[in-house]
Design a protein around this nucleic acid. Sequence first.
DNA 1: TTGACATATCAAGCTTTCTTTATATATTGA
DNA 2: TCAATATATAAAGAAAGCTTGATATGTCAA
Lengths: 108, 108
Amino acid sequence: MAALLPARMLERPADLTRLAKLFHALSDETRLRIVGKLLGGEQCVCNLTDALDAGQSRLSFHLKALKDAGLVSDRRAGRWVHYALNPEVLQEIKNFIGSVREGAARCC
Amino acid sequence: MAALLPARMLERPADLTRLAKLFHALSDETRLRIVGKLLGGEQCVCNLTDALDAGQSRLSFHLKALKDAGLVSDRRAGRWVHYALNPEVLQEIKNFIGSVREGAARCC
DNA sequence: TTGACATATCAAGCTTTCTTTATATATTGA
DNA sequence: TCAATATATAAAGAAAGCTTGATATGTCAA
């Protein structure tokens, strides 16, 4: 995906679907706050439960949304599960938005 | 917004709300296809109606969503309305994702 | 093996978003 | 002014997403 121009991606159904899912994962305030907590590095779910005022199943729901979109990875360590951001996927999004911006700026 | 570090933005309710709205605007395949059509420059709604197979009111609904989020601007020219991408807002999103990515890559 | 703890999943209800059809508004040309 | 055209808005139903409370799964320590 990273190699494609946005003009192409925005015509390919599979890429459209993937992009929409990525942006959807980022379109919720609770999930954005989770992303904020993960900026400091991998975090145990238990830390997130404390930091955000979200109930346990709610947090789990949003972590799953982020994970399904590919924005975060999880790693079980004993009884705890740690989540971390996926820099490559963030880079893909940045590249995509960057090329859209370039396209927009070039012609207007 | 552009000047703030993501760590800060992701703690400020107003910024969280704005970011969530921006990403929500990008989280729909029809709207992404509209963005694709606007890469070539400002487009009349009538061109978009032809290019996408969306009905008129549906297209109008999605254009409004993009406009409310600040991603596009509209300009009436007589009987026609033209929509165009807003490069500055795209730049803001790119900067935001870029800093999140850097934060993610730095620590992991 | 049992009990306690961390996390995930499920189900139900509620809210938001999207689609469709119908109607309204704005602009132009006759 | 009237008819035609372009676009927006409204209303209603369908679909998707979110929250909450209950239950299930998995892991450890005793």
